[in-house]
Design a protein around this nucleic acid. Structure first.
Lengths: 238, 238
DNA sequence: CGATCTTTTGAAAGCTTTCAATCCAAGTGG
DNA sequence: CCACTTGGATTGAAAGCTTTCAAAAGATCG
């Protein structure tokens, strides 16, 4: 059970243990005491919605493949992506009966659907499961607060640097190359995540490229040439 | 036990039930099964820190009086306040052993300190307590995501309007006058919460005043003259 | 190879910040 | 009781950064 998928959206490196019960995505079953509960997988095409705001929260989702973007919108169409979920991450865990935002696949994806009733059962029958869920929420809150710092106080260049660094760190944590970043999402989605426009994102990626800090292998493939410089930029270099 | 203090930082109106165990701030004891655990209160002067980043997380705190600001900083001094905690709110509940941000009293305040060991005990002995904590975290995550939308996608005027509206709704929820807003914090703290400068906050409050949407009774006392207009502004008027 | 979607680049406009000065309210001391 | 001091809030003008509008350059797909 120890593999990269064990991470629960844990940017901070916490070993949130929800997957100890939910498995690593290879099995379709969840152990509950001595019995098992069957879940089902759901494939998602690029841009397909997993749920929309107001939908009844019937399941928790574990990302198996691809990346899911969760976002909020203003009535006039402005959009803010609040988080990207990667394989191994769990979506849900709150106590709301309805979703309070939209979730859309940013590329072809696959999720495991766990009925909320199963989750409720696990909480009462499996000691530690509730704690794991709590830990997951706490980690997510922590990351969201970091993002607040980015959106509220960082310049466009710093935001982009922070974003790339976050991907680099995720790679490192999962044993992948921390210098080779894959961006599964479009510039528009990076922009909506960083509170910028497409053009500003593009310009600042170009700036990082010109400075020699990164290299664009392709539009969605970036190699970091100088991580320490990137870190300095991301934290408001000092 | 049913009073305004029951709210757990619940902007969304959720009746998170942690205070069912922790009481309403009038008692110094917590019921644990048939026994009680004693906690202690701690008064805080204006600008006194409740904890600093990196400090060991020894207690959870329940706000009894005043307002506490929780913030993060960049190495060069830029600050982002991630949330304001009001009476009835709980600080903590994550699973981190150390605080990941600073907490400072914005005015004279008082908190009840609950040892983490007590919390751990409550989680295992009091059915429902863990759920209540989880609910609290979920609500906080939700609010933080709303703030992301503000910081990432709203104009300065919209941010200020949203901020005032949030206070108005808190008042309403607690049975206070939704049209008379008391701002316990300085402009500088509003600015650090909204990702703006003091001057921009001031200018936009003036703008709201000039438009007749609000009236400044004093520097920290605002009366809302047209709530629906304020709401329209806050949500990106359409 | 043409059509379409995405990214990049350029130039002007706009909004927020920065820098500076003034205003205000509260507290202090004579 | 009235200057005087002080910290905070407001207002003004210029600078700066990001957005907007527009167009060109790349990709992708049939």
């Amino acid at each position: 059970m120890s593999n990269a998928q064990l991470a629960i959206n844990n940017e901070t490196g916490h070993a949130a243990g929800v997957n100890e019960w939910l498995g690593d995505g290879q099995s379709a079953q969840i152990k509950m005491g001595s019995s098992f509960t069957t879940t089902h997988e759901r494939p998602l095409d690029m841009h397909e919605h997993l749920f929309m705001i107001g939908d009844k929260q019937t399941h928790l989702y574990q990302i198996l493949e691809g990346v899911i973007g969760v976002y909020k919108m203003l009535p006039d169409g402005r959009r803010q992506i609040v988080t990207f979920y990667y394989p191994g991450d769990m979506i849900g865990g709150g106590d709301k009966s309805n979703w309070t935002q939209h979730a859309e696949a940013l590329c072809n994806a696959k999720v495991r659907c766990i009925p909320v009733s199963t989750v409720d059962t696990l909480i009462t029958t499996e000691p530690g499961f509730g704690q794991a869920l709590m830990s997951m929420l706490a980690t997510e809150l922590e990351e969201t607060r970091d993002q607040l710092l980015s959106l509220g106080r960082k310049s466009a260049l710093e935001k982009v640097a922070t974003f790339l660094l976050r991907i680099s760190r995720r790679n490192k944590r999962e044993g992948a190359d921390e210098s080779l970043l894959h961006l599964p999402m479009k510039r528009a989605e990076i922009a909506d995540y960083l509170g910028l426009t497409i053009e500003t994102v593009s310009r600042n990626i170009t700036k990082l490229k010109t400075t020699g800090i990164i290299r664009l292998e392709s539009k969605s493939e970036i190699s970091v040439k100088d991580i320490s410089l990137l870190e300095e930029l991301a934290d408001g270099g000092n």
